[in-house]
Amino acid sequence: MNKTNQGGGTVIIGEYQKQYTLDSSHVRLQFFPHLYTMNWDQCSILADYFASYFAICFPEKQHKQLLSTISYLVNELFENVLKFNVCGEVNVAVTAKPQELIFLLTNQLEQSKVENFSSLLQNLISQDPLELMMEKVEENFADEASTASGLGLLSLMADYGATFGWQFVDNNIADTVTVKTMARLPIE
């Protein structure tokens, strides 16, 4: 189990590399969904933007693969932002390295949601992602009332080899926690 308490109200789950920050990124976008509502279709528009922007940082023979993969990853991250309870601004930053792309998504979560969310994430990183994904699909099938798939991060880990880490930082001035999600996508 990869969970560490960093002190000062900071907890890390999974593979979170603190040297990558919003300020060290190639591109950073900031959104204010609590002020200007984001809609579902904007997720794919943003995803396609990031995909087009970063695919051409790599050799041409990789473009088609990268356009699809980056778009899938960013779309899933943004869909999660819209689906789950988010309050306050959202930042997305991307850094391109020769062998990988690093995505850092920062958003605010209500304190009351943190325990369930962090348990879910710990479960996610503590098992084989393919096995967990298979179990999740069987579970979704058995539960006719289920509406969310829960497959986004799992499929990225199982099918794309992406790794994830999260940093939770307590905000002192509000009943919220800042959640930083780091996704690292290996470039084939």
């Binding site: 699809s68 899938y72 869909e79 099938f141 969310a148 497959l151 499929s155």
Partner: peptide, 14 residues
């Protein structure tokens, strides 16, 4: 089918 999100993949698998 050029793109499918995880909800769609879930639908296929189910």
């Amino acid at each position: 089918l050029e793109f499918l999100n995880s909800s769609g993949i879930n639908v296929l698998y189910k």
